[in-house]
Write a protein that binds this DNA or RNA. Structure first.
Lengths: 312, 312
DNA sequence: TTGAAAGCGCTAACAT
DNA sequence: ATGTTAGCGCTTTCAA
């Protein structure tokens, strides 16, 4: 592979001049610049990104921290991020944690070493305070409401939408609601938000037995619904954490032949349309888009992305 | 951030020795090794990946080239790749092309500069021969049947499965089949495979008007089906390039109120289960998994991933 | 077993 | 306008 030395040697100019045509073309005379550019093209030369990064102390990568990419919630956000990154020339690298703090720490250290120009924490295990410690090394953006913590955030106004959704559930006459989630309220801000909205509308705490954690796929939804239907037949509404999951719930109740409860999904995917189920649209692609743009420019900002309740 | 110099200075040993405890611990005396490791831990030291990469001429990244990550086909493969990469400590970076050769060239140059230990071409625009030119710089794996080209490949046996699917269509009595695809046969090997399988079973060429290109979402499927239903009412079977797309086709015919044709999807997603439509399961996560493993170890190999026709 | 030093490809002062 | 040079953090001969 051709290096900057090769083009310097061949053109007869110095390293510095060649470097200048790459980084500050205006400083070099048009004629020599043309000559150097021609040779670069001939040699099919591209600056080595690693060397550049090492010298500059920065890269054109953004790291995206997330537990996995199975769940549609994460997949949609990653979609938005890569779309936004594409025209900018930034690369996005996926940093899966499998819910393990250790990996998050590892990624943070790599960040500190300037491997990533910015990081997006789509999800995190580490305390927010730990992340805040790293903002001095570059841009970190979180995808949650962080209050007035000194860290950039992009988040959806879940509370408002969850309340609207529960109000709809209440008005429809449902009184025995079960919730499905990825992780319990002790681990997940989303689950806490959801429960708080429930309490706000129903004026009571949710029966702990009516929250089923560990649900992330249609199959999980199916299993959870089977459990609920057999152990707690009074349940008349199931709020699922994803449309495909909602579809799994639907299938389980249908197969058991018991009375179908009301079901709600989230993410506004195809499956809720097909089954004509209400859902919540978090506009996750938009969220990803914004998160990327925050990740590549300095400054601490907080941005809200509105979500919608889709009644059906 | 602590560098190797810091730990050398603090421990009183030389750079070389510290480097050795990182890379060849057996060469350094147990006592000095312990001492150095303790200081490393205290300083929270991690080797700088860029510097390491520059020095070594290699990275622990694999690049995944694909047009975009919207289509479930790509999303599923990426899922498989990241899952396989996780336990190995390799990073995966997404390299979207938007179907533009220029970007593929750019990525190939970065590869040549050792930015990526391996590359996976989930899709490509560049001629295969161009890719083959780069295998001497590292592992490149393509996700298609490349015959005896000297490049590693992982691909699904589409032909067999497509034939089985068309045979099923034939046996069910359908005689007027339309096909939906991302890109026309002139650009897409998948489409060519599909058409060849059609010809094999039906003993005739597909009427060109009965192939609708540019279909990649449920909405596209909906629009294509509307067009087909109104311009060519004889059509009695629609083969869609995705289950969600098949669902769009279903919706279009249903809304028009005309006789519902047979419909088949691919990828075995939830939507085909819900609508009870036959589909093809390409086992794309498995394919991604294998692709990753091929990408990180040298050698040219070809591997077939079996796909299934799911009759419904 | 440990140390010294060259080099990976590039950038950015600083000199000319 | 162009050249020279000292790093960026690390690995790896080669010596001691």
């Amino acid at each position: 592979m051709a290096t900057i030395h090769d083009v310097a040697r061949i053109t007869g100019f110095s390293l510095g001049t060649v470097s200048n045509v790459i980084n500050r073309p205006e400083r070099v005379a048009p004629k020599t610049r043309a000559k150097i550019e021609r040779v670069m093209a001939e040699l099919n030369y591209t600056p080595n990104a690693m060397a550049r990064g090492l010298s500059l102390g920065q890269s054109r990568n953004v790291g995206v921290v997330l537990p996995n990419s199975h769940h549609p919630y994460f997949a949609h956000i990653v979609d938005g991020i890569t779309d936004a990154a594409f025209p900018t020339g930034y690369r996005v690298t996926l940093l899966p944690t499998n819910y393990d703090e250790g990996f998050e720490r590892q990624y943070l250290r790599e960040f500190q070493q300037k491997m990533y120009a910015g990081m997006i924490f789509v999800s995190r295990q580490l305390p927010l305070a730990d992340l805040v410690n790293y903002v001095r090394y570059g841009q970190i953006v979180t995808c949650e409401n962080v209050g007035d913590m000194k860290i950039t955030s992009v988040y959806s106004d879940r509370t408002t939408t969850y309340r609207a959704a529960f109000r709809w559930v209440w008005q429809r006459g449902y009184r025995n609601v079960a919730l499905l989630g990825l992780r319990g309220p002790e681990h997940s801000e989303t689950t806490r938000d959801l429960m708080r909205a429930y309490e706000y509308v129903f004026h009571e705490e949710l029966d702990p037995d009516r929250f089923r954690p560990g649900v992330s796929s249609r199959q999980d939804g199916y299993a959870a619904a089977q459990y609920l239907a057999t152990t707690d037949p009074k349940i008349d509404f199931v709020m699922a954490n994803g449309d495909d999951i909602a579809a799994g719930v639907y299938a389980a109740y249908k197969e058991l032949g018991v009375k179908m409860p009301g079901i709600m999904g989230t993410e506004n995917q195809l499956s809720s349309q097909l089954l004509h189920l209400p859902t919540i649209n978090h506009h996750l692609e938009t969220l990803g888009h914004i998160a990327f743009n925050q990740a590549i420019r300095p400054g601490i900002r907080h941005q809200l992305v509105k979500s919608d309740f889709v009644a059906r």
